[in-house]
């Protein structure tokens, strides 16, 4: 069972949150200009990292805000949380 730090509400139980998968996927600005391969890649292909992973969560049963987290997908330890629009600890700009 995870205990997740909402950037606004602080530590809350996992059951209050919904998961949003891989973070920092940027929607293509002009989808109609993409090849089928690039569009399929954007829609379906995912990093699915084993280890340190940047991902999205939403505090659904709390403040209802989306935010990002860096979590280890094997130990499940959450290293950091940061708001949408903030830089990830690894410097990936949103």
């Amino acid at each position: 069972m995870l205990s997740i730090d909402c950037p606004w509400c602080g530590s809350r139980d996992q059951s209050e949150f919904s998961y949003g998968g891989e973070a920092h996927i940027v929607r293509p600005k002009e989808p109609e200009k993409l090849s089928d391969e690039d569009w399929g890649d954007y829609l379906f292909n995912r990093k699915n990292t084993k280890g340190r992973f940047e991902e999205q969560w939403c505090h659904t049963a709390g403040c209802r805000r989306w935010f990002n987290a860096v979590r280890d997908s094997q130990s499940y330890k959450i290293e950091a949380v940061y708001k949408i629009g903030e830089q990830s600890p690894d410097g990936i700009p949103e």
Binding site: C9, R12, D13, S15, E16, A61, G62, C63
Partner: peptide, 10 residues
Amino acid sequence: CAQTILAHSN
């Protein structure tokens, strides 16, 4: 105050 889950209810 806090929004949370109580007995499966928001």
